[in-house]
Design a protein around this nucleic acid. Sequence first.
DNA 1: ACCTCTGGCTGGATAT
DNA 2: ATATCCAGCCAG
Length: 824
Amino acid sequence: MVERYFLLGVGYDGQERKAFLKLLNLSTNTVEIYMDPTGHKPYCLTDQPVQELEKNQALREAGATAFIKVTKYDSIADKMREMTLIQATDPLAVGGSKKSIRELIPAWEADIPYHLNYVYDMRLTPSMIYEKKNDELIPVYGEKSKVENILQQFFSDLSGEERDEMENWLRMLESEHPMVDFTGLDIEILSDSPTKVPSPSNPVDRVVAVSFSGTRGMGKVLVLRRDGVDMTFNGGEYSVEVFDDETALLSRCFEIIDSYPIVVTFNGDDFDLPYLRNRAEKLGIPKSRIPITLGREGASLRRGIHLDLYRFFNNKSVQVYAFDNRYREHTLDGVAKALIGVGKVELSKTLNELSLQELADYSYRDSRLLRDMVEAGDRLILRLMAVISRISKMPIEDVCRHGVSGWIKNLLYWELRGRNWLIPRKEELINAKGGTTTKAIIEGKKYRGALVVEPVPGVHFNVTVLDFASLYPSILKEYNLSFETINCGHESCRTNTIPETTHWVCRERRGIQSSIIGVIRDIRVRWYKPMASNKSLDPVTRSWYEVVQRALKVFLNASYGVLGFEEFPLYCPPLAESTTAIGRYVFSSAVEKAKSLGVTVVYGDTDSIFLKAEKQELVHELIRWAREKFRLDLEFDKVYRYVVFSKRKKNYLGVTDRGVVDVKGLTGKKRNIPVFIKEAFDDMLKQLAEVKSAEELETVKKNIRQVIATWYSRLKNRTFEIDQLAFRVMMSKTIERYEKTTPQHVKAAKKLQSLGIKVGPGDIISYVKTKDKDGVTPLQLAKRENIDVDKYIEYMRSTFEQVLDPLEIDFDSIIGLTSLESFM
DNA sequence: ACCTCTGGCTGGATAT
DNA sequence: ATATCCAGCCAG
């Protein structure tokens, strides 16, 4: 049996050293490391001997403060023997204050950039499995023969560098995932007053319970004995350890934490772990016996890895692309209910009124939810994190803590460093490349975006939808867009212009961002996407491809967005603007082409075209044309039996040839509307799903009238539960920060606040419309008789009219009829 | 520690 | 009464 080690993470910000030291610790040899006493960051690793570095005038002048040699290890890889740690003042990182190397070498135009060979060359790829053979650590890559096969079958057109690059990506993404043990962790604090929120920075209150739920069916709750509390325990799926002394409880807690390589929490970065750490210190437990360290970005474990799921689920990209927007609230209860169908234990008493059994049950459920969420879908969450970690070259802990812009930044930095390029500062980039030249449609935006075709109102049967696959990433790839190629220095490239702008693109060299995005795009489109929908694979394998496919999609989608994001270190407005400008050019060309072929375009948005195509041949001709003219994949997406358009953009309803109803943008599908109206709307959709022809539509219209009449009378006769009428709207900021206006959900929130209920950003406020001064009441306080039924009828009308108008059904005539009937 | 972008719709609050 | 802004949610 081969002994396996598992290394999670190398980053750029001091992480190399950490990873490096971790590795060294695994070897049996003594290591001496001489560090610069000031401990300045950053540092980089090179295989140049120290003497050579000391002679390097450029480094000297750049303010390198120390040359450090690491010695006396010879057991890892040969290449690492001569590894040298240099500490210089900002050789690469953005934002250095002193004179830096970048001033000595013309940044991105340098032919021979400054040489630095990183530890990355060792391919200490994040979250990779390492095997220990003869005291050497060897990363376990995807099987070479398998990757060779994929390359031959799916990427046979690639050769040379491109092929090597693709091989690296495939070997990394195809490599297996470690099945590491983990445990969920949750703590309960008991304060004197129930309204007081325990503070991790001032941990005056006792830790009364700590629960664990982990792999191999482990379940355990540590409880503090308290006077006057019923301490009987009748068992459960977990075991209980009772402590008379809080210090002993915490020590035991730390012992368990230390025994797991991964500890999962919900908000452990900001609450559980800092609380445990500070409370333990306060009780006099020596620092050396507390396995928790607190950093600027969160809480870490001395030995293992801490994953804060709260941070992860808060990530918009994760929410939308990885979990299909299945959860909306960022609470443990909300996310767990949405993902695994179980929520927290509901309490009718306060914590200090609970018996041991009740407290333990309550606490245990939370850590159990964490475990179940992590284990769901064959450890989907962990695999997703690991894949993102591998793509972004970022430690898995940091993956949870950073947004998509952080991931992309890390990936790009890695690639730039791997090519020995200097990374430009933001100001340098802006100065050299300039700003935007187009004007946005929406006021306050920085540049012009996509086009939307005016829909042709009415009902259209047999509509074919085509779309450009990954339009923006494809444009970045095909048009060589990258920060160093846009508005480049070559006089001869100036004629290579971008429509509607004053920008041009380089013809001489291949853009780095362009090629990176290109590889990611190709690998997703040509290998992972098809494999994810390959029905002949077993479900587990397929879901694995699905995870990779989605992770790649996150990077692709955001790769364009970050270009226009001011806080992004490689912020480059002309790039972002050029991408959308080319997008508009391609899109409008396609629409014109369709028209010239005699095909009617009924709608289109950004990259999709809705065609009334009688002849399939014309559709294929359009697809061919796009490939030949733009080298872009215009793909068949779906056929709608029929589509219903109003005159509004981004608002339509369509029934596909398989009978699936697509609703886009209509009020009836928004998630903040009352379930009452949503259900009524869904009822109508059921009717519409059945329609196959224009004739059937006529008969179904009658049914629809009936459906609406039914729901209308339910409303009118008040046969509803009030929670069915609740609007659920999220607060994006604290109550006080709503200065200019007071929207309805904030009015409701204020009423809750005055009752002592805490409301803050991220909270979803449930309220109903009532007949009183403010017109709104929080759901908790509402009474059926105060409901403002007329307001709801109005809301129902506007929701339904979006569909009824184009179908030429008159809402008022339906409800008019109903009131007439009810008189009779 | 909410933070990839622009375009577009809605209802209600607020200004004119 | 009407126009404009604000805030939330969605399409792509």
